[in-house]
Computed example of a mutant assay.
Amino acid sequence: MVNFNGDLLETSEAKLNLENRGYKYGDALFETLRVVNGKIFFLEDHYFRLMSSMRILRMDIPMNFTMEFFEEEILKTIKANPSFNNSARIRLNVDRGDGGKYLPDDNSKPSFNIVAEPLQNLFYQVNPFEDYRVDLYKDFYVSPGLLSGLKSNNKVIQVIGSIYAKENNLSNCLVLNTDKSIIEGLNGNLFLVKGESIKTPPLEDGCLKGVMRKQILSLLHNNPNYDIEEASISPFELQKADELFITNTIVGIQSIGSYRKKKYANTVAVDILNKLNARLRLGS
């Protein structure tokens, strides 16, 4: 069952109109959330990122689009899929509705849909990483700006970058901006570890304003064992790093095993992951 503007429908019945602007122009936003035992991880962060993104795209926000409204609709969708009750991945999609060319016919009636998929684990796991290989994706570059930080439906670079990775037997690729700085992985934010220093690209470089990125930064800023810095990352720094890892809300932390001939450890990533799970278990 999927949730289509509040109505629960069989997947076969939930069909988008060909005039849907998310389909025609990528005029849509989405949030990917993790739900465990009826609790939506980082709901407030997801909600405020969505509202901020809607304002940037000049979407009118209906009065009923409150955090409580989306929480209720997400949990309603989970309950309609009983096998997903313990742990689920949610995609909440908001688009500008139907009609118009580049100029919308009506900007006041955004629509939403919610799709759930089962997840195996309740909390974040330490994933295998030794065979997790990455390289730079240099066919296209991201131009930094407000739009580059949005989780919008325009993910062409991520799509063709993923195809490139598969064609070259890579697990992932690192994306660069027009200044040739590394900004993120294809599916999450990037962190670089060198000794006790941890660096992640700043939002000004064009990376996604990731919810998990925010959680990791919060953990690190309160940890005296690490020095955290938001600063540009040059490709040359990859060869000197001790660890690299990618973060997103579904996987948590994915350590990178190698970049070209350079191999990495995952000691710091495991430490951070354990602290993240401890925070989640305490419900903070």
Rank of each mutant, 00 (worst) to 15 (best):
M1S: 12
F4N: 07
N5L: 12
T11R: 14
N17V: 01
G26W: 04
A28G: 15
R34W: 01
N37R: 14
D45P: 00
H46C: 11
F48M: 11
L50C: 01
I56S: 06
L57A: 07
N64V: 13
F69W: 11
F70T: 02
L75D: 08
K76Q: 10
A80M: 05
P82K: 09
N93F: 13
N93Q: 10
V94T: 08
D98F: 11
P104V: 00
K109A: 09
K109G: 10
P110N: 03
P110Q: 09
S111C: 08
N113G: 10
N113C: 13
A116M: 03
N121T: 14
V126Y: 04
D135S: 13
D135W: 00
L136A: 01
D139L: 13
S143C: 08
G145P: 04
S152W: 03
N153M: 09
V156D: 04
V156A: 13
I163S: 10
I163D: 10
N168E: 07
L170D: 04
N172R: 05
V175D: 00
T178K: 13
D179K: 14
K180H: 15
L186S: 02
N189V: 04
S197E: 15
K199D: 04
P201A: 04
G206A: 01
L208P: 01
Q215F: 11
I216M: 08
L217F: 04
L219G: 08
N223H: 00
P224S: 01
E230W: 00
E230G: 01
S234A: 07
S234N: 12
L238T: 13
Q239E: 14
A241M: 05
L244I: 10
T247K: 03
Q254G: 06
S255A: 15
I256E: 05
I256K: 01
G257E: 11
T267K: 15
V268F: 09
I272L: 07
N274Q: 12
L276T: 06
L276E: 03
R279C: 12
L280T: 08
L282V: 02
